[in-house]
């Protein structure tokens, strides 16, 4: 077998020249993976006037950056972005390519994986390098792609044993972002871009974006409600507790699906990952997808009428009881302390 590549690539997602947080998180993780493989980390930056962004990726551990700049590439478009990365991957055959599991990443990564016949695993909650024995064969330094699967009852480790290119997407907030210990010299490789008339078969007519005022990731206190809250009206109590404690309100996927709370406030694998000082889970049973999004909170209070609910196993304080009964008591007790 030919010598495989030892390159880890991170697609750096930008909107209006600003990188998505997840890209820096992936660079931080990618640095560790590259070190474990004895390899190098490269960032792939596509846009217009985004050279400063390529430079910034070195603070998060990049050894090298591929920079593709052109006015036509200012905003994300599936076809030209796909073509650029398809060509780069085909030419250089990296060992690992990481994308954020954002709308853009989930639009782009599958196209690239399909074109380059690469393995792709969605929404990983952890990535590691390890020597693997699979069906009696040894595979040194493989990427372990770890994700909850199947309604969250299990954690699956996915590998890409016989394929040279391993791709994965990761949700924002799942990996921690930190500056690299050793910052390498900036080495930017400019990649020429030539527009293709076919790109115009999809045109952006309008775009409306509101910077989200909701900042769950930054909130020190989060009160989250689940399906166990029962009704949209009852959810008002969850909001009230959040308000009294000066925190943000959030919900589990089941609460979002039931229409109790909008998706922007969903905590978990398919929502936001949070690490607040205090996380209060009310009426949330605690499926693995939910726990994946909150179990690194500093303190966790679980309130649930079912004493066997799995949420209690990650909680520091457990209260068995009906939320409609516990929350008013909580609010009342807290207000008394403030007096």
């Amino acid at each position: 077998m030919a010598e495989t590549s030892k390159e880890v690539w991170v697609f750096v997602e930008q909107r209006g020249g600003r990188a998505a947080d997840v890209s820096f998180e992936l660079l931080s993780k990618g640095r560790k993976l590259a070190d474990a493989m004895g390899g190098v980390l490269k960032s792939v930056v596509i846009g217009d006037g985004v050279r400063p962004l390529a430079v910034e990726t070195f603070r998060f551990g990049a050894d090298e950056s591929y920079l593709v700049e052109h006015p036509d590439l200012a905003g994300y478009k599936t076809l030209p972005y796909g073509r650029v990365i398809n060509d780069l991957v085909t030419k250089h055959r990296p060992r690992i390519v990481l994308f954020g599991a954002t709308i853009i990443g989930r639009d782009l990564a599958p196209r690239v994986a399909s074109h380059t016949v690469s393995g792709l695993t969605a929404d990983c909650t952890d990535l590691k390098i390890a020597d693997v024995n699979y069906l009696g064969r040894d595979y040194p330094k493989l990427l372990l792609q770890i994700r909850p699967a199947f309604g969250g009852n299990i954690i699956a480790t996915i590998i890409t044993p016989d394929n040279p290119i391993q791709m994965a997407t990761v949700r924002e907030g799942v990996m921690e972002k930190h500056h690299a210990e050793i910052v390498r010299d900036v080495r930017i490789v400019d990649i020429p871009y030539s527009p293709n008339g076919l790109d115009d078969i999809v045109r952006v007519v309008e775009q409306h974006r509101e910077e989200s005022r909701i900042n769950l990731k930054g909130a020190p206190i989060i009160v989250a409600g689940g399906y166990g809250i029962g009704t949209k009206e009852n959810f008002g109590l969850v909001r009230e507790l959040a308000h009294v404690l000066g925190g943000e309100v959030a919900g589990s996927r089941a609460a979002v699906d039931a229409g109790f709370i909008p998706h922007e406030r969903q905590v978990g694998q398919t929502g936001v990952t949070v690490r607040p000082k205090l996380y209060i889970a009310v009426g949330i049973s605690g499926a693995i997808q939910h726990r994946a999004g909150m179990q690194e909170s500093k303190k966790i209070i679980a309130i649930n009428s079912d004493p066997d609910a799995p949420i209690f196993e990650v909680a520091h304080y457990g209260i068995v009881g009906d939320a409609m009964d516990v929350i008013p008591r909580f609010i009342d007790a807290y207000k008394r302390k403030l007096k």
Partner: peptide, 27 residues
């Protein structure tokens, strides 16, 4: 290209929580 290498039921990190009585005094 992707294969399931391992499947585990979830190992929970935390130990059992401090049990708080559902009373005003407990909370």
């Amino acid at each position: 290209p992707t294969k399931v290498h391992k499947v585990e039921s979830v190992v929970l990190a935390g130990s059992s929580p401090a049990k708080i009585e559902n009373t005003t005094a407990g909370i």
